[in-house]
Design a protein around this nucleic acid. Sequence first.
DNA 1: CTGAAAGCGCTTACAG
DNA 2: CTGAAAGCGCTTACAG
Lengths: 379, 379
Amino acid sequence: MGVTLKDVARLAGVSAKTVSNVVNGCPGVSDALRRRVRDAIGQLGYRPHLAARHLRTGRTGLLALVVDTPHLDEVARAILRAAAQRGHRVVVAPRGPARGVTAAWRDVPADGILLGTNAPPRDVLDAEVTAGTPLVLLGEGRDDRCDRVGVDMVRAARDATAHLLALGRRRIAAIGADPGPSRSRTAGYRQALRRAGIDAPAAYVRATARPERTDGYHAARSLLAHDPPPDAIFCYSDPLAVGAIRAATDAGLRVPDDVAVIGFGGTEEGRYVRPSLSTVVPDAEVIARAAVTRIVARIACPDLPPAEIVAPHTVLPRESAPAPPGGSRPASPRESAPELPGGTVRACPRGSVPHRETAPHTPRAGDGAAAAGGPRVPA
Amino acid sequence: MGVTLKDVARLAGVSAKTVSNVVNGCPGVSDALRRRVRDAIGQLGYRPHLAARHLRTGRTGLLALVVDTPHLDEVARAILRAAAQRGHRVVVAPRGPARGVTAAWRDVPADGILLGTNAPPRDVLDAEVTAGTPLVLLGEGRDDRCDRVGVDMVRAARDATAHLLALGRRRIAAIGADPGPSRSRTAGYRQALRRAGIDAPAAYVRATARPERTDGYHAARSLLAHDPPPDAIFCYSDPLAVGAIRAATDAGLRVPDDVAVIGFGGTEEGRYVRPSLSTVVPDAEVIARAAVTRIVARIACPDLPPAEIVAPHTVLPRESAPAPPGGSRPASPRESAPELPGGTVRACPRGSVPHRETAPHTPRAGDGAAAAGGPRVPA
DNA sequence: CTGAAAGCGCTTACAG
DNA sequence: CTGAAAGCGCTTACAG
């Protein structure tokens, strides 16, 4: 407590500037001096005072991550890994109370925010945008003025629903959080049904207050008491689906025979429930890499035109909604990614029209294994 | 970006000091002035620059929470709630790489750290202690120089094992993370067996690299191939137990008939797996309240002698290790709390001998329901 | 390649 | 009850 740059400078017999240069790895310091300064730093146990640096430069060197919705849990984990790997420090900002979402993260000192909340309220977003906060959206929310990295939610929901249709289900229900935030998933769900010539009763779409297990449990219980009961349920998050499975089996129904269930998020938990959970898997690694790259670029270059980066997703059939009999044919990353011209994030391009890009899907060893894992071998 | 206290002062026609007083709610400002200042703040959209305040006062106003081990997941959630409720801002610091744990949180600006990691490495702890970082330990780790808030781990493990014994099990195995970090749980497990006159083979105690589902899966699989196979498994975290259940059922065994399983942590997830998971439930609310109170006190008053605050725990029987036939008799909070003189945390007492206290267990409405919930009604 | 000085936006003794 | 001044620990033009 209390060793300052000045102390180091005095001990090393140099000026503060030189110490600063050494600490920040700036060129223009002779090797001899550099060593002397390093020694002094080690000897005194000097650590730079982050707040002072922040006050001076306006930069904290921290990224804030806000994840509000369980379908992004795996994405959040991947972001933490990706950032650590590239030497970016991240703090996780707790989400605030429903409305005052802002409060929670406004006060964490960070250079930019990765916002994994569905439906950031309009006014909150406005405040951040006008304040000039570098912001990358991860959830459903979309805004012309902001970057977004994530899967094509409409298409992902359509694929999930199509998977249930391919199993021969016709009475397909949907359980999700508030209608507002989940708009695009509901749109995808409806698209798939429409294409199949099916008209779902209004009662088949259930909003829940939160996207948690208990909400899924209760929504499913009520849904299964409907006449006629659904023979399949698409849940907008894995926890919702876990609750739905429990509700169905508690009601004496067989999953998937009586009612198939599919979730959204690709969480580990789904592998272990019984029956194991079929789910839509966003490519968390791709999202994480793109999101970190993007927020860093945005911080460095605030005038970058807002971009939307679309990551691939996969439908992962497990026990609760297995691959259709005619041969397993889950949407591959290739198929599920929108057919748009690819591209990479360029630094500070001219122009300011929001553009849309497809994230490059760099396959890694283990990718397939991770996605394909059936219930039998939780690797 | 850029509205400073000075701007507010100028607009309101007062000095910086007065604005500062108003912002910080200090007395000694007339109501008229206070209003004028408030108006100016609103008009300009002024928000104090946290780094400047930090630099000046040495306080960030933030608490850091580090949770490294899933048996504290519910505790972490409760801490976030408790802190928010009392107006303390918390940031969650990501855990660093195994050894350099420090790195991850040293750089998040916080006034104190709630450290929910088992076995904080000695040198890391030494560094924090000598740096004078206010620190409250939540996990197994214990240190004469630090506060700790948590359940009596030895006793909790003993209770879990005793529960399996009460079911008539004799070949009881244990699955946990590294032996070091989990020392006291292993001690409790052994105590219970010894008291029952049982000698478990060394192979019945399995260390795992991490406390996650997949680790539990593999450890259990190998354990169940042992001759003779265990008829019960105590897992040091709920995810380990979820993995163990899946391994057992995948191997064609019935849980609990062939092998009973009990976890540790009382996570929600355990309610939804099938069979639902019996588990040791730390009283997360008590721990959360005590931990927040303690870290705040410690920050305000660094010379407080270190205290250990012991919170109650309960054994929650569910399907994977049901209540013993002779009538459900899980350890009650009263029974499971150590028989030590109660006490409350006093502010800055004299003396410096580490003392031990029992946290007051203030029963709240819904407490019973939350703890007793069987699998049928995930509230 | 290195040094001395100014200033980031607050708070806090110190005067009035 | 309010104001003017100093300083927290850095970095960054600006000189040498």
